[in-house]
Design a protein around this nucleic acid. Structure first.
Lengths: 343, 343
DNA sequence: ACCTGCGTGTCATACGTATGACTATACACC
DNA sequence: GGTGTATAGTCATACGTATGACACGCAGGT
């Protein structure tokens, strides 16, 4: 009669797919039954024969569970977001891989979101998060992490500086100490450092750790040996200048493996041999470390462990609601071909 | 009276946040009003003063739009997924960055999903997609892309081989021809190729293009010069063996910039100088290409353009429903320091 | 005859938002 | 006073799924 009331008279004119009700009708059962079957709660409640009928009807219609409706009803998407400062860094890719696997085991999916280093991008991330519902957010230490928590309550922070607000602690102090110990043990006195520029916040803690580790070994910190704009236009020249000077460092620690090629390049240009004339230690242990010539000595922060641990922490936060227990990542030095005794 | 019927008597005991109804109540307006304001359709319908009152009530309560409910109602999340075979490849990271920017301009967000090279992982991707609603899926050429389309109707395929089913065509033929032309022009006769192993499907088309480009220049294809398991255990040794033989290639084309370090390493071990003793051309033009010593000559497939174009195609597919127009990516040779004339 | 329990389902409702249709008031113009 | 039109909202319903409560039939026990 009053079927002109809304446009819902003729079946499914919109581009929405078939619904559980359509399947139910086709199979001659109720919508509840379809729902029970598709959410896997039909054991002991639905006759296997009915189940088959429903499944086949669903297949014929091309039925798919509507994720939004399900999420609305259940209050969860079972979706985790991993927000990284730089998706181009293979280290984060490795973490993603591990996180994906760990989350899948618990029925969660993981997606990666690229936030820049720029705090302004952080704002934009929040916009993006505001529009989508993630059950948990994994993020690296950042000025806006407190804000993030307002948007995704179950936010888990990986931090290198202080275990204070972090859920997963990647101890910059320990990591850098590994490297400095190794170099000091090989006789190096003048140790430089190549870091990201200061906007790359997640790595900032390593700068401080560097100074502390040096003084722990009674080595002098020389600001001239610290190098912090690796991808700037003049970066390569400045590094070359530093290395060709008379009072140059005999070793460098790279805040991230990804920075090592920079030093390799400068050394090669100057005819300095690695490791004989210049020793290098990286941090992270990405695949590239094994592919360089010579292969790179580095402090491994096993990305598999990091990814797994982050997901663990996130899920704990989601389940318990409270702040999860602090987890600390164990790191270890992997000695390869880029470090040698001082001449 | 019958308020013990369901557990909804006392306000908000679940961990769900406040709803638009809560805000409405707090502000003394109807839920519709709140909805209108938060979906930005209040212009000329809601008094600015009322608007402020609602906004402030919302801020006090910490109200956030529920994405699931919104998506259910609107039938869209405005979310695109970029599925890549290997998130560790910086090339894809660059594409992600560009895609994110392009999509944002249209009100869409982009997330990255790491699918392995393994077709089995493709199945798992589909599982994952089945559980979440993406409006569009961007994916590289793959045996299971037809299946993907069943799960996310608006699937856009980037393909290098044939523009047939692709929405965005990254012409392997043209790309490889750029490289071979350059090398042939420099006098190289024996040109080898370093590719990914054959499970890395997105790059498979370049293998075929290689053969064709060679014969286009009347150069002989020598299967011994083709090298396809770059990250296997014995890979480095085999490459070294190949290069130390008497009848070795004078140039290599790397199917991906990421493979270049492998050749650099082998050359360095053997005392071969690049480019004097061995020329190398990469494909992609990732940042690393500029950081190697010497910097890498490569065929640029501008990731910014690729990312933008993919999003464009995806949105066209979403809006129109039909297959979008074919887009072809323009590539160009970037000559740097890793190629030189044959001696 | 009555209760218990099991197997199989169904009913009704709620999740939170968006929106077409409608209402109410104020003012203006003829 | 009647008509028109702008402003400022409200109402009711739909999106598709999940689930606690309930229903019905039958077997078995007492």
């Amino acid at each position: 009669m009053d079927n002109q009331h809304h446009g819902q008279d003729n079946g499914r004119d919109r581009r929405r797919g078939p619904t559980s009700r359509d399947v139910a009708q086709a199979a001659g059962v109720s919508q509840s039954t379809v729902s029970l079957i598709f959410s896997g709660k039909d054991a002991g409640r639905i006759n296997p024969a009915t189940r088959e009928a429903v499944l086949s009807a669903a297949a014929t219609l091309g039925y798919r569970l509507n994720a939004s409706a399900r999420a609305l009803k259940l209050g969860t998407h079972r979706l985790l977001a991993l927000a990284v400062p730089n998706a181009a860094n293979p280290y984060f890719a490795a973490v993603l891989k591990a996180a994906t696997a760990a989350a899948r085991a618990k029925g969660y999916a993981v997606v990666l979101i690229n936030v820049g280093d720029d705090p302004g991008d952080g704002e934009r991330l929040l916009e993006s998060l505001a529009a989508h519902t993630f059950d948990g957010l994994i993020v690296w230490e950042n000025p806006w992490t407190p804000t993030a928590e307002r948007f995704v309550p179950a936010t888990v922070v990986a931090d290198g500086l202080s275990p204070g607000d972090a859920a997963v602690f990647i101890p910059a102090g320990v990591i850098v100490r590994h490297a400095i110990e190794h170099l000091a043990g090989l006789g190096h006195q003048k140790i430089g450092r190549i870091g990201f520029d200061m906007t790359a916040i997640p790595f900032r803690s390593r700068a401080q750790a560097f100074r502390e580790a040096l003084s722990g070994h009674s080595l002098r910190f020389d600001p001239r040996f610290e190098f912090e704009e690796p991808f700037g236009a003049t970066a390569s020249d400045r590094l070359t200048a530093l290395l060709s000077g008379p009072d140059r460092p005999s070793a460098f620690i790279c805040d991230d493996d990804l920075l090592a090629p920079l030093a390799y390049r400068a050394a090669s240009r100057l005819g300095l041999r690695i490791p004989d004339d210049l020793s290098l230690v990286g941090i992270g242990d990405i695949d590239l470390a094994r592919l360089m010539e010579p292969d790179l000595t580095t402090v491994a922060i096993p990305p598999e462990v990091v990814g797994e641990t982050l997901v663990e922490a996130a899920l704990e936060r989601i389940d318990l609601g409270s702040k999860p227990a602090l987890r600390t990542i164990e790191t270890r030095l992997v000695v390869r071909g880029s470090t040698a005794k001082t001449p």
